[in-house]
Design a binder for these strands. Structure first.
Length: 473
RNA sequence: GCGCCCUUCGUCUAUCGGUUAGGACGACAGCCUUUCACGUUGUAAAGACGGGUUCGACUCCCGUAGGGCGCACCA
């Protein structure tokens, strides 16, 4: 009988929730759900300079949008500083830590010297064994962890396997700053222990920290959590995620019109797999998610595949749900708020009818919105000289050319118009010669085919409706 | 510079010593459709390189090359 699983997502609030963080959160969440455990949320705000409330809000909003819920309240790491200090003192008392009086300048010099001499850049242990009586006056010391100098520290990682660090390569890290504030590695260990975290799932960029943290756990006599370090996500060009592409906050993906479910599915497949399964529900992800199936190599972010997946999700949604998703998306879209203000019951009805046709050709909510633009076009549509000329010349070919001119929706052309006209004529049993007026009335109210709308309306406006007989015949 | 990690089609990945190396996205071609899209069928496309171990290596070991991460009184 194993203990309940407790995972945690621990972002530092120095920016938005980026895509790598979102995936880490997803993995923590999926594993907690899979095991019937909990996922805690801890805000790592010990860096008072760089942490902001706006960033915290952005992270919580991003997770909420992605549907990643956490158990209990989000915990502020900074609020536990007293506790971290207490543990630092305990370490000191146990002889696992010591005061170091080196100034930042001295440390910089030490690093520069090591670099110049091409030696490893490490703290040299100046104060490790010096007597407290040597302490210079007026210098506030930091507390350093006295890490073992021989032997090795082993991380048994679910994704990385058994990773061995020689202790001689790990120097004595600062655990308490001279101003009395704890540093990251101490805080993390204390919090994870105090919060009962059983499984740590985070990016490989923390692998070295895992070794140092393990040493602290050992020094305190605490059980080391189960570790999983997931490979990083790179940009499309293989280089590190930069502002230019992938390093966007999840809210940017929302603005690009991606569905949370699609993004979850896509992110899950980056670094994790379940045989040949590509498209799966979040329920299936939870059911299948095992840490052992996380890969070791970094993945590139591929927009084309995300779009394809998103299109799949859009198509399979039922019309009403999709319409709701579109409406919920509008506030975040360019021009969206304006459109939102114009949606009344009538428009909603038209949109609802149009969804079936629209979703076939939209990969994102942005495309869906643009595809529906014809419903929002101000009538009569403005016509340029070219359009007038085309109408004047007439002919089915004219209609064909006219469509792109008249609406922002260039896809639906004369063939659709012709088919609709004929079908309507047949259904109503009316002769084509008498079609123009009734056709217009009928189609204006019910059709969801964009250019039919526009063309007929515009043709009517310019009193060219009569020509449709000729055009069709 | 030191430490750790990674390397299968362009991309995401399957394979856990024996397969015609599979799937998906993308690409290309065909079908469907008098547009676009959807759908559908097919094609091209991969084990970085060099050594071992083994009857047999993509798979295990060593080395080389390339890439990533870490090396703060940041997290």
């Amino acid at each position: 009988m194993s203990l309940p699983v407790v995972t945690r997502f621990a972002p530092s609030p120095t920016g938005y929730l980026h895509i790598g963080g979102a995936r880490t959160a997803l993995f923590n969440w999926a594993y907690a759900k899979h095991t019937g455990g909990k996922m805690l949320l801890r805000i790592e705000d010990t860096d008072r300079e760089r942490s902001t409330d706006a960033a915290i809000d952005a992270i919580l909003a991003g997770m909420t949008w992605l549907g990643l819920t956490w158990d209990g309240d989000a915990v502020s790491q900074h609020a536990q500083a007293f506790r971290h200090r207490e543990v630092a003192e305990q370490l000191l008392a146990k002889g696992h830590a010591y005061h170091c009086y080196c100034s930042p300048q001295e440390l910089d010099a030490m690093r520069a010297k090591a670099e110049a001499e091409k030696r490893p850049i490490r703290y040299d242990g100046t104060w490790r064994d010096r007597a407290p009586s040597d302490a210079p006056d007026g210098v506030k010391p930091v507390i350093r962890f006295k890490s073992p100098q021989t032997g090795e520290t082993v991380i048994d990682d679910n994704a990385q396997g058994r990773v061995v660090f020689a202790n001689k390569d790990l120097d004595d890290l600062i655990i308490l700053r001279s101003d009395g504030n704890p540093t990251y590695n101490l805080s993390v260990v204390v919090d994870d222990h105090d919060m009962g975290v059983s499984h740590i799932i985070r990016g490989v960029d923390h692998l070295t920290n895992a070794a140092r943290q393990t040493q602290i756990y050992v020094a305190m006599g605490w059980k080391v959590p189960n570790m999983t370090h997931v490979p990083l996500i790179h940009g499309p060009d293989g280089a590190k995620l930069s502002k230019r592409h992938g390093a966007l906050g999840v809210e940017a993906y929302r603005a690009m019109g991606y569905l949370p479910a699609a993004l979850r599915n896509y992110l899950a497949r980056l670094g994790w797999s379940h045989g040949d399964d590509e498209i799966f529900s979040t329920e299936q992800l939870v059911e299948w998610f095992e840490l052992a199936n996380i890969g070791k190599s970094p993945a590139r972010f591929d927009y084309a595949k995300l779009e394809n997946l998103n299109g799949h999700y859009i198509r399979q949604m039922d019309d009403e749900a999709l319409l709701n998703a579109l409406i919920a998306f509008l506030p975040f879209a360019e021009d969206g708020p304006a459109l939102l203000g114009r949606i009344d019951d009538t428009k909603r009805g038209q949109l609802s009818k149009a969804m079936a046709g629209l979703k076939e050709r939209a990969k994102t909510l942005v495309e869906l919105k643009n595809g529906a633009a014809y419903l929002f076009a101000i009538r009569p549509l403005a016509m340029d000289e070219k359009a007038r000329q085309i109408i004047a010349e007439g002919g089915i070919a004219a209609l064909q050319e006219l469509v792109p001119v008249l609406s922002g929706c260039v896809d639906w052309t004369a063939s659709a118009i012709e088919a609709a006209v004929k079908a309507h004529a047949e259904a109503k049993g009316i002769k084509l010669g008498k079609l123009a007026q009734p056709l217009r009335a009928s189609l204006t109210g019910t059709s969801t085919s964009p250019p039919i709308f526009d063309v007929l309306e515009v043709l009517g406006r310019v009193e060219a409706m009569g020509r449709i007989n000729d055009l069709v015949n």
